[in-house]
Design a binder for these strands. Sequence first.
DNA 1: AGTAAATATAAGCATTTGCTTATTTACTTT
DNA 2: AAAGTAAATAAGCAAATGCTTATATTTACT
Lengths: 102, 102
Amino acid sequence: MNISSMEKQLKALADANRLILLSCLKNKEVCVCDLVDVLNISQPAVSQHLKKLKDAGIIKERKVGTWKHYSIVENLSPVAQQVVDELDVLTKCDCGGESCSI
Amino acid sequence: MNISSMEKQLKALADANRLILLSCLKNKEVCVCDLVDVLNISQPAVSQHLKKLKDAGIIKERKVGTWKHYSIVENLSPVAQQVVDELDVLTKCDCGGESCSI
DNA sequence: AGTAAATATAAGCATTTGCTTATTTACTTT
DNA sequence: AAAGTAAATAAGCAAATGCTTATATTTACT
């Protein structure tokens, strides 16, 4: 990987809120509404974080009606994979509530 | 590793100039004067980048007279190690010139 | 068609970042 | 001691970042 695409991925990863989002997404698909509940920031802020992760090729989205389900891409770069591996799974955002039915 | 120390390391790594510095330091010790020649930025700017990498626990310094030699720490965190592994060695900054004798 | 819900985008603002030039510190050499 | 060199620190500034509120877009439901 060249320096500039590595920089882009690292910039996307170098934020506590985005790392928490990735902890939520580790091993599962989660919809935006549930991710919003995890962080104490507004819905647009979460949306902007997700966009940054998506633009860096770290997560992908799947549209399901009005909802959007995000998940970590399959073939992550070695660096991004290592970051995700180091994160603890955050079960706080497991689905099951009435708000969202994955 | 917890989220906040991981964030600090990633922030230190998420910059093209600092990645280039790490490419120079890969496998060897280099003095500041030679690192300054590699990047097209001022000496103080390089010094600030090195400080950020040092504060994140990624590089260390060794004082030799008036010079300071920097190198990558031995027991790098898994994430930082993966980043360094992905970088190509930059031979441009190999010592040998008259300015610095490591 | 009209309303509601989920998400994205736009605009604005405070903080952080990365650079610059100027200065300071520490060491070496004469 | 005085002068020179290597590196760090200080101060200041433009650009980038992360948040906010407001608005737009898309889909679902009645």
